[in-house]
Design a protein around this nucleic acid. Structure first.
Lengths: 214, 214
DNA sequence: ATGCCAAGTGAACGACCGTACGTTCCTGGG
DNA sequence: CCCAGGAACGTACGGTCGTTCACTTGGCAT
């Protein structure tokens, strides 16, 4: 094998795996990870049921791979773009803004993938549960770190309770998503934006670095 | 038939129906409404599968009946007790406190029934979706009405944005539930309590009618 | 006592599920 | 050239699903 070149056979498998996962994240955001079915996937993608099965080894492994694929999409849509804004309260706001756009634009057709899947597996033990918990914990930690950076930059009041602020912001984001999907109404994103900005204005040392509250 | 006396045969059916629903709300709060299975219910309750089926006519009707049964429990645990506190900011707080207790004490083993079920059916059309949306809308309307009563009582600042405040409070409650179930950790209820009380203190005309922020 | 009617049973159905196994096809390495 | 090995296929298996239907049982009214 030429150095560094990947085996074309394996690459073909990875490509099919990506094809499958592109569909499973969509399905799971609407119908949940238990709504995935090998037979249905196979017929939708013109593959054989046993072929799809062989790509992942088990349904549970397919579910976990689906969660990991959704994480990649989320990082791409929210976390990575937010890094382009310099640390501080502006980055915290940018993170929230990107998250709301990610939800509103239905990057996943059923709204935030993790909202659906976390509610589905929250009370069920097992590897899938653990993978979801891990993803959620990483997200929360990132929000808290971003807030902490804002404090260190002198952008956010020194005495701010990081855990509490992160809790409040995430709560606004998640309810905006849940409500808009449930009632098929995007007006709630405006309410959430107001809630987030009001909260950030209250802790920002220099409110002019933030948009006005609508 | 004696006047006002119900037919004992029908009453027997209602009793069995209640027996089934007592179990389905538990299961659905953990595994979702799609996790309900007639065969499993029958064997757990020592009934015949076709008997359970006949009681509800279809699985979909069983799911809707389960949602209605959960509404009754919720009213009993949260809404009705809150009415014992006189209208005003204290009743708003009492409502939130009761809700957090309802979630934390696991009245349903999977946490708030509606959190699980709303996430499951949010993006799926059909009668079950509509029933869930209706229940959620009633709850939100009740919170908003309770806040409005607080304003009318002079307890809450006149200019308060009712929709926004209701959104924020409900967001805190729901994330507390979601987080505590997902991570099997009840510490988040303290964070949520702080968030709720801080928000209410900010709009209360007489903060002494509220507990101190922890 | 007789007839009606709802509750509940038991067996059977067609459909779909996840999984297993042997085969075919194709590509890269010796 | 030949063959090792991964992708993908076809078929089959055991099991569970929701639903149907003919039936027994037992409380109610006449």
């Amino acid at each position: 094998m030429a150095e560094g070149r990947t085996d074309g056979r394996i690459e073909r498998g990875n490509q099919t795996r990506r094809l499958v996962l592109r569909r499973t994240v969509e399905i799971a955001s609407v119908e949940g990870l238990e709504g995935l079915s090998l037979g249905r996937l196979a017929s939708e993608l013109n593959l054989s049921k046993s072929g799809v099965f062989a790509l992942f080894g088990s349904k549970e492994e397919l579910q976990q791979a689906t969660v990991r694929a959704a994480v990649d999409v989320f990082l791409d849509q929210v976390v990575t773009p937010a890094r382009r804004t310099p640390p501080g309260v502006a980055r915290v706001w940018e993170l929230c803004r990107l998250w709301l756009a990610y939800s509103e634009q239905r990057v996943f057709p059923g709204g935030c993938f993790f909202y659906s899947v976390a509610a589905e597996f929250d009370a069920r033990p097992g590897p899938v549960h653990d993978t979801v918990v891990g993803a959620q914990a990483d997200w929360r930690a990132f929000v808290e770190r971003t807030i902490t950076e804002g404090i260190e930059a002198g952008d956010i009041a020194a005495g701010t309770d990081v855990t509490l602020l992160a809790f409040e912001l995430i709560a606004f984001l998640e309810l905006a998503n849940g409500d808009s999907v449930l009632r098929d109404d995007s007006a709630v994103y405006r309410t959430a934006t107001t809630a987030v900005l009001r909260r950030l204005h209250a802790v920002a040392t220099d409110p002019s670095s933030l948009p006005a509250v609508p």
